[in-house]
């Protein structure tokens, strides 16, 4: 790899032309085959119900929720429709699981007082948690960081009817959703030059954090073998090594790394390596682990300003106690 500091102009004018031809040809083909676009925006509010019960009975008896509510018709692919699909049509049972019996609501011409609409903490407690009480060793809807409350509840993050095919019926994309409250963390991801690529390749806040998790360390996901989420991708750092770096063994990855974005290329907590290392590896009057100086190197010499130039196996080595290889 050599540095090639030069301008890279688009080198594919031919490909661009080819692509444009394909685009135009595809568009023309589809135009010839399809009617004009008639895609309305998704409707949350119900369609206008018949003015009176008599009118409803006379014109179009309201026999199913989907007669008035678009979202009921679009519920086919919603996980909550399972068990309530007959011949490719969602039955009223899918709606009634959360909204209760809708007979009186229909007979009332869409009377909103005659139907249950779960909202806020009470709605989540009385509806969502009836099935989704996901208490495990990691999760708790009672004591978790996002425990069901009036400020944060199931419906703060999940949209049952308008999730637009997102995983877990999320109301927004994960990053945008978390940014609603955790704006400073998301700003670090977006602004700092070196950070995990959120929103790319399926990586998001929940790749490492358990949103339903308990407070403290249990908020960090673990892999099946019990190690923290970092090990799910950085598998070569698992070890064990004959000589493990004490910062890894007695601490964890965050002893040295800043996962939410860093000014250092390897997402270290300090911009320069020597600074990070010498903050621990420096003798003082305290008896602390690893406090001996690594050597007598003159760190004013550029040769020794980056400890990892020589101590390359900084996570652990099977050969060198000084982590030289």
């Amino acid at each position: 790899m050599t540095e090639r500091d030069k301008s890279m102009t688009p080198k594919a004018t031919g490909r661009l032309l080819l692509l444009l031809v394909v685009v135009l040809f595809s568009g023309a083909t589809v135009v010839a085959q399809e009617p004009p676009a008639t895609q309305p925006p998704a409707q949350e509010t119900p369609a206008e119900p018949p003015a009176t019960q008599e009118e409803a009975t006379a014109e179009q008896p309201a026999m199913s929720c989907g007669d008035c509510h678009d979202q009921a018709r679009d519920f086919l692919h919603n996980p909550h429709a399972r068990g309530n699909v007959e011949n490719g049509v969602v039955s009223n049972g899918a709606c009634e699981t959360c909204h209760g019996d809708g007979t009186a609501h229909m007979e009332g011409g869409g009377d909103k007082a005659q139907i249950t609409v779960p909202r806020g903490r009470e709605g989540a407690d009385g509806t969502c948690l009836m099935c989704h009480d996901t208490t495990t060793h990691k999760k708790s809807p009672r004591s978790g960081v996002h425990a069901n409350s009036s400020a944060v509840n199931c419906l703060s993050c999940h949209s049952i009817h308008k999730s637009e095919n997102r995983p877990a019926l999320l109301a927004k994309e994960t990053e945008a959703l978390c940014a609603t409250c955790h704006s400073t963390q998301v700003a670090a991801f977006r602004g700092k030059p070196f950070a995990h690529r959120l929103g790319r390749g399926g990586m998001s806040c929940v790749s490492c954090h358990e949103p339903h998790g308990r407070a403290g360390r249990e908020n960090i996901r673990t892999v099946a073998s019990g190690e923290i989420a970092c090990a799910s991708c950085h598998r070569e750092k698992h070890g064990p090594f004959v000589f493990e770096h004490g910062a890894v063994s007695a601490g964890d990855c965050s002893s040295c790394h800043e996962p939410h974005g860093s000014t250092n290329a390897h997402q270290l907590k300090r911009a320069t390596v020597a600074q990070l290392c010498l903050e621990c590896h420096s003798p003082t009057q305290m008896a602390t682990a690893g406090s001996q100086p690594p050597s007598f190197h003159n760190i004013s010499n550029p040769r020794f300003q980056n400890c990892t130039t020589c101590h390359v196996a900084v996570h652990g080595s099977n050969r060198s106690p000084q982590l030289l290889k």
């Binding site: 004490g246 003798p283 682990a289 406090s291 100086p293």
Partner: peptide, 21 residues
């Protein structure tokens, strides 16, 4: 409770890296 028993080769200056903490 952490106990580190380093290899002798590692010790350059008295005080060492090891011990019980």
């Amino acid at each position: 409770d952490v106990t580190i028993t380093p290899d002798l080769e590692e010790v350059v200056i008295g005080g060492g890296n090891g011990g019980t903490f």
